[in-house]
Design a protein around this nucleic acid. Sequence first.
DNA 1: GGCGTTGTTGGGGA
DNA 2: TTCCCCAACAACGC
Length: 287
Amino acid sequence: MPELPEVETIRRGLAQHILGKEITHIEVRLPKMIKTDQTEFTRTLQGNAFHSIDRQGKLLIFHLEQHSELALLLHLKMTGQLIYRHGSEQVAGGHPWPPYNDELPNKYSHIIFTFATGAHLYFNDQRQFGYLKLVEQEDVQKEKEKYGIEPHTDNFTRTAFRKLFTNRHTQLKSLLLNQSIISGIGNIYADEICFYAGIKPHRTVDTLTPLEINTLFDGCLTVIGTAIQHRGTTISDFTDANGQRGNYSDYLHVYGREGQSCHRCAGTITKTKVAGRGTHWCPDCQK
DNA sequence: GGCGTTGTTGGGGA
DNA sequence: TTCCCCAACAACGC
């Protein structure tokens, strides 16, 4: 499940490889992955190059060198992957990235970009929930405005964060998952942030003390920041742009640890449903 | 073959 | 009007 740290890991990896390289061909194996007109899609991108890669929450935004009035939006949803493979171009120091997943292309490779260098970019998606969309710049702006404040940006201040909890009556987990309130947190990091702060995910937010909200703020920055440092979390599908796993899986305290002992107290991690999602927490040290 | 899975959306209720 | 919950949806592996 790519959340902010995973999508950021992909963004950084891709930016090292694809910027400025001419796209010579796009193979659309599954047209429904493209949510805008397919003819315009291929016509705009073939012969073009990516100028920069931006991100808002879990959404990737590719800016173009030509037709810069347009941008490409890409969402990985649950099982999307973006994997770059060198073709005939020279790689300093050889070929440093052993593939983690199946050979490419595989049966989930729905869109394949070919660059003039001979390199390929594969958009794989087992469940076909992800999408690509070519939109006008003003729609990019509109899209970004739908999102709430994002950890590790200028807007993400203690004051702004505190405000998110005023005049609200909802479960903490539900607030953390709400993309229009906070950008980029999904099921894994919501649970980990609640654990960090020692708070039950189903606490109603108007019962939280100023001290607890402070700790949640720190938790968002620490958990998300550390996860980015470790290149994200791989549960089953996630890989970075080079096809490698994320290492934050080794640092999870609650997610996927049902029945195992708490890293902080003598408790046992439990799994329940909160806000309609599988939720992992320690009933002993999360209050 | 029914269930579980999660990100997102929108219907409907308060 | 706004907020919030929850069902629905996507398609696959098990």
